[in-house]
Amino acid sequence: MSSVAAPSRPHRPLFAIGLRLVAVICLAVMFVTGRVADVHGVHLVETLFYRQALALPVVFAWLAMSSGIGAIRTRRISVHATRMVIGLTGMALNFLSYILLPPAEATTIGFTMPIFGTILSALILREPTGIHRWAAVLIGFLGVLIMVRPEGGHFPPMGVAVAITAALVTASVSLVLRELGRTESAGVVVFWFTALSVPPLGIGMLFYGQAHDAQTWGLLLMIGLFGGIAQLCLTAALRWAPVSVVLPMDYSSILWTTLLGWAIWGDWPMWTTWVGAALIIASGLYIAWREHRHARRIATA
C-alpha cells in the first residue's frame, strides 16, 4: 500500500531571520518605552494591562487571517492558565528590571535565560546534561559576575536580583511551552496567554489605573502595539526556519537597547558589561548548538 508523504515545511531562512530581527527590535523598544512610562508615573500594573489589552486585537486579527477563528479552540485551558501565570510574572519582572537597571545591563542579564533553561531541564525534566553544557553554564555565570562586579556597587542589588529572577521565570515558561507545543500551535498559545491575562490585570486596574496626558497615552499605545508585533514576528519566524537558525538574532538586542539607552538617558555600558555580555552570549549560543545537535541525532536515529 502506498503512503502519501507529508508536505514539507517551508524553509526561508533569510525571511525568518528578518522576522526575528524585527521582533527583537520591537521588544527592545517596548521595554525601553516601559522605562520611560515609569518616569511619567505609569504603574507597572498599567503597563502590563495595556501591553496585553492592546496586543490582543492584533493577535486575534492575525489568527483570524492565518488559521481562522476556529483555531483558538483548546481542550487544555488549565495548562494555558498555568502558562499565563508564569508568563505574566516573568513579563512583570522583565519590565521591572528595565526600570531598575540601565537597558543594556537588564538585557545582558536576560541573556542568562538559556542557562537557567539548561539547569531546569536537568533538575525537573531529568534531561541528560553533559559536561559541555555544564561548562557553558559556568561560563555564563562567570560573565554575570564580571558584568555585575558585586564588590564595585555599580548597580543596585535589587535590580540585579529582579533581572536574574526574570530570566529564571522566563526559562521556566519554556518548560510549560514544551508541554503545550505537543498539541497547540504557537499562534494559539500566544492568543490564550494574551487573552487570559487581561481579566486579572483588569482587576488590578481598579486599584492602579489612572488618567494620563496625551504623551503618556502614546507611550502606552507603543508598548501594546510593539509588544503585539514582536509576539507575532517571533511566532511567524519559527514557521520559516528552525530555532537554531533564528535564535542568534535575539542577542542583537544588546545593540538596540544600548543605542536607545544612550539616545534617551546618555547611558553607555562599562567595559565589564561588554566582556560579561560576550561570555553570556557565547554560553547561550553553545547551549543552543548542543541542543540542535542533540535534536538532529534523535531525528536521524
Score class of each variant (00 low, 15 high):
Ser2Met: 12
Ser3Ile: 14
Val4Lys: 09
Arg12Gly: 05
Leu27Gln: 08
Ala28Ile: 06
Val39Glu: 02
Thr47Leu: 06
Leu48Glu: 03
Leu48His: 04
Phe49Thr: 03
Leu54Gln: 07
Pro57Trp: 02
Met65Lys: 04
Ser67Met: 07
Arg75Thr: 13
Arg75Gly: 14
Ser78Asp: 13
Val79Ser: 08
Thr82Ala: 15
Arg83Val: 06
Val85Gly: 02
Val85Thr: 11
Ile86Phe: 05
Ile86Arg: 03
Leu88Cys: 11
Gly90Lys: 11
Tyr98Val: 03
Ile99Asp: 12
Ala106Ser: 14
Ile115Pro: 00
Phe116His: 11
Gly117Ser: 15
Thr118Cys: 10
Ile119Thr: 05
Arg126Gln: 10
Gly130Met: 04
His132Lys: 10
Trp134Val: 04
Ala135Ile: 08
Phe141Met: 10
Gly143Arg: 01
Met147Trp: 07
Met158Tyr: 05
Met158Ile: 14
Val160Asn: 08
Ala163Gln: 09
Ile164Ser: 08
Thr165Trp: 10
Ser172Tyr: 10
Leu177Asn: 14
Leu180Ile: 09
Gly181Arg: 04
Ser185Val: 01
Val190Trp: 00
Trp192Tyr: 03
Ser197Glu: 01
Ser197Arg: 00
Val198Arg: 07
Leu201Phe: 01
Leu206Trp: 03
Gln210Gly: 07
His212Thr: 03
Leu220Met: 15
Leu221Asn: 01
Ile223Leu: 04
Gly224Ala: 05
Val245Arg: 14
Leu247Cys: 00
Leu247Glu: 15
Met249Thr: 15
Asp250Asn: 13
Ile254Cys: 00
Thr258Asp: 04
Leu260Asp: 00
Ile264Asp: 02
Gly266Arg: 06
Met270Asp: 14
Gly276Asn: 06
Ala277Cys: 09
Ala277Leu: 05
Ser283Phe: 05
Trp289Ser: 12
His292Asp: 15
Ala295Gly: 10
Arg296Val: 12
Ile298Trp: 05
Ala301His: 11
